[in-house]
Amino acid sequence: MEHEQDSEHQELQDRPSKSQVKRDMLALQALGKRLVDTSVERLKRLNLEEKLLAAILLAQRTTSREGRRRQVHYVGKLMREAPAQEIQAQLDAWDKGSATETAHMHRLERDRDRLLASDDHLTPWLEQHPSVDIQAFRALIRAARQEAKKNASQPADHMPQRKHYRALFQAIKAAYDEKNEQQPSDPPTT
């Protein structure tokens, strides 16, 4: 008799608390919400169970607030059977990659703005990117500056021209891409 009580007591201690169960459930619902906010292309790459994918797609199409909330709740319930840690890891990897891409684009835009603002930034930039055709690059900067002056003199309701502005961005991006290709990915081991 005493042995049975000890085993029941041990079994109760081994179970997660109600609070822990609720935290886990809320975490799965939050992950389900992230899946609902994820693009269809990425959802397909996750290889989700058909029933879960259908529920997510339905939640994405649902326009009523209450209906969407209930559908997201259902997705969270279905997440109990899904490999949540794998899904979480993949979503985090995509988010990190996205943040890295955004930071890279912001750096390219800053370089473009600095090059357009002053020639003082051109020489150091060219030293970092020696493979760039200097004459063609200078011509792009001059054209983008002239384009900006012309746009400034246009009326406010006039659509500004961005051809050379965009071309300069693409040239900067190509220079960075070429520089990254030339750098070895792993340092040589000795």
Rank of each mutant, 00 (worst) to 15 (best):
E109M: 12
P160W: 12
Q154G: 02
Q135W: 04
T38V: 08
K77M: 08
R42V: 08
T100D: 13
R65Y: 07
D120V: 14
T63L: 08
A103E: 11
R70A: 09
K77Q: 11
L140M: 06
W125T: 00
L115F: 09
R80S: 06
H106P: 01
A54K: 14
T100S: 10
H104G: 05
D37C: 02
L140K: 04
V36A: 00
K150F: 01
Q88R: 10
R69G: 06
N47Q: 14
I56K: 00
E101D: 14
L52R: 00
E49A: 13
L57V: 04
A144V: 10
L126Y: 05
M79L: 11
A89Y: 03
E50T: 12
R65E: 14
A84R: 04
N47I: 01
E50F: 02
D157T: 09
I87K: 02
T63I: 02
H106Q: 15
A143V: 10
T100G: 00
Q135H: 12
R42F: 10
L140N: 10
M159S: 08
E41R: 05
F137E: 10
D92T: 13
L46T: 13
A89K: 09
H106E: 15
A117M: 09
P160R: 10
V75G: 00
A148H: 06
I134V: 15
L122A: 05
A93F: 11
Q135T: 15
A93Y: 07
D95F: 10
R34M: 06
A89H: 09
D120N: 10
D113Y: 07
R70N: 07
V36K: 00
R166P: 04
Q161Y: 01
L115Y: 06
T63Q: 12
Q128Y: 05
L115C: 09
Q71M: 11
A152S: 08
E49S: 06
R110K: 09
E109C: 03
